[in-house]
Amino acid sequence: MSQAQTTSTRSSSLGATLGAIGRHRVVWPLAALALLFIVDFIISPSFFNIRIVEGRLFGSLIDIPYRAAPTALVALGMAVVIGTKGIDLSVGSIVAIGGAVITWRIHAGDPHLLILFIALAVGLLCGLWNGFLVAALDIQPIIATLILMVSGRGIGLMINLLYGGTDPSFTSPLLQGLSTGHIGYIPTRLLVFVFIFALLWTLLRRTALGLFLESVGGNTAAAYLTGINARMVIFSAYVISGLMASSAGVILTADTHTSDPISVALNIELDAILAVVIGGASLGGGRIYLGMTILGALVIQSLTTTILTSGMPPEYNLVVKAVVVVVVLLLQSSNFRSLTLSILARRKR
């Protein structure tokens, strides 16, 4: 902590300190997560229990990150794209295409390690396509990525036809191990997630790419005038998003060990965007919060878990999510906040 910060903390009153904590962006999503956990604990006192079954950890606290991992991967890529003032609607389609390619190559008899890289290359290719449309052709991101969103699942179905398409299921010790296996007591999927997160974090924060992405998203003209190649930076964001989506695709496809382009990762783009927004990033771009995005994904998964443990039918999930989106958005709107404040002030008088 710098000296200025230390002095300011010391000189401020307790109230101001609390206010500063309240304003910190990590507090609200964390509070939401804590609240959900408390609700879960009240409903089911065994919520925090972690057992060891068949040599691996079991319990809600393991289950939530386990289920959240694919969405969190996609959301991390989405956070990068949103940081540049863009959006990537095609992530679900990329997952679908990746799944189909994996199944196709397994049926073709490729070595499974190679297939892992082929799957990532598919994501890279999709990212290049989106990046080309947005950065080179200057098409609005929503529309540019809509193209792959519309056609991607169809492409997946076509790839399924390449090997006859009669039985799109497969077995792959390597891929299934990555998705549903465990190393020691810990699910491999979580280790994979941590590994990819570390890679992405290093790429963004140990090089200057993160700063460039954020400056281009915050003020493209200013970034350009400091000599940053804005087009290449935007391009890279979509490539990263494509890669993240395809790595989520590997986990999701291996989990069900089948290619199901129509329903795999349905609405995952919406969950990913929601995770980024809960993580405190603005859709207007300019900031990438990787850790906060994971927190956002955990909040979304905990919400689902809470609905399930509370005995509410799972159908309520979507409505609750919608309400969360609306509340978060309204809270971000300055017009709405001032309206609420003025109504409250009137009440007091």
Binding site: T207, E214, S215, G218, N219, A221
Partner: peptide, 29 residues
């Protein structure tokens, strides 16, 4: 406002932006 500062970034980040751009993205300060 339109061409100068990147409002969301911090004072530190704004100050190093041009030097960083000169050094390239791999050679982070």
């Amino acid at each position: 406002k339109a061409e100068g500062v990147v409002g969301e970034l911090t004072v530190r980040e704004n100050i190093v932006l041009a030097l960083q751009s000169k050094r390239g993205w791999l050679n982070r300060l």
